[in-house]
């Protein structure tokens, strides 16, 4: 029996060391995004309203030149999210021209000022993905689910720990986006990115220090822009996160009490059997 076990252990160790070697090599030219502190991480995480508003400003002034963000204007009034006032959202929506879904009574497609129920329109320069791809080489993705649609490999054994209470790590997509924005480290090549798999990224460096003027005194640095836009995109992808965690806490408390009571009931019932 002992022979079997040591053989199994030896082969497992061998497999692991092979894997480890391959990983170390990969690590050297493809670093993993650094892990950031996010207000929305952890069991009690919520969004930072001021940060989301700054993030929206970055989206509006920079990202929206190329990227669509298909969420309705009304979502921006979400009190768990950016929390703009209803009037602010109305004014904002009206400042955009949107294409009406139905043609008018003459059968003509027409544009009108937006309302809070409309989706934020696509960038005007690129009416669809094909048009964008023709000019930019590759269509910029819609940003409404971007934070959920991006990841990096955590690898064994980290991915196991990522699921455990207290260690849970769900912000892989956010860390990836933040890293990409900070990954343009070769000034002579605007399409080289340290964190993009293979380094050759279609998007040239989108934002640098000082590109957006914040009004709340936050320093206008790339590091702040990338954090703010990432937080905003995370909210856009997962607007129910604060409510989800709040309900989750109540459900957990309820289940722990229930399980405790059932355990003692079970014990009492079991004693009667013998």
């Amino acid at each position: 029996m002992i022979r079997f076990k040591s053989a199994a252990l030896a082969s497992a160790a061998l497999a692991l060391s092979f894997g480890g070697f391959a990983l170390a090599q990969e690590e050297a030219d493809q670093p993993k995004p650094p892990r950031q502190e996010w207000s929305f991480a952890g069991m009690f995480g919520t969004y930072d309203q001021a940060q989301l508003q700054r993030g929206f400003q970055v989206y509006r002034e920079v990202c929206s030149n190329c990227h669509a963000l298909s969420i309705p204007f009304r979502a921006l009034a979400d009190p768990d999210g950016p929390g703009y006032g209803e009037d602010q959202v109305k004014t904002l929506a009206a400042s955009y021209q949107v294409t009406n879904a139905e043609p008018n009574d003459k059968g003509e497609i027409f544009k009108r000022p937006g309302t809070p129920a409309d989706l934020i329109p696509r960038p005007e320069a690129y009416p669809n993905d094909q048009a964008a791809a023709a000019v930019l080489g590759k269509a910029p993705p819609d940003m409404n689910l971007l934070a959920k649609a991006r990841k990096y490999e955590r690898g064994f054994p980290w991915f196991v720990f990522d699921a455990l209470p207290g260690l849970e790590y769900q912000e892989v997509g956010s860390d990836y986006i933040d890293a990409i924005l900070n990954g343009y480290t070769k000034p002579d090549d605007p399409q080289w990115n340290l964190y993009y798999p293979g380094h050759k990224i279609a998007m040239p460096q989108p934002i640098t220090d000082g590109a957006v003027k914040y009004t709340d005194g936050t320093a206008p640095t790339l590091s702040n822009y990338s954090k703010d836009i990432t937080a905003f995109l995370t909210w856009a992808a997962e607007p129910n996160l604060p409510e989800r965690k709040k309900i989750g806490l109540r459900v957990m408390l309820f289940l722990f009490v229930l399980a405790g009571l059932l355990y003692f009931t079970k014990k009492r019932v079991g004693e009667a059997a013998h």
Binding site: M43, K148, D162, A163, P165, E168, Q170, R244, K245, I247, G248, L249, V251, M252, L255
Partner: peptide, 10 residues
């Protein structure tokens, strides 16, 4: 519940 509420995208 842990999966649903805390790591739903895991």
């Amino acid at each position: 519940a842990w999966l649903i509420f805390y790591i739903p995208n895991y």
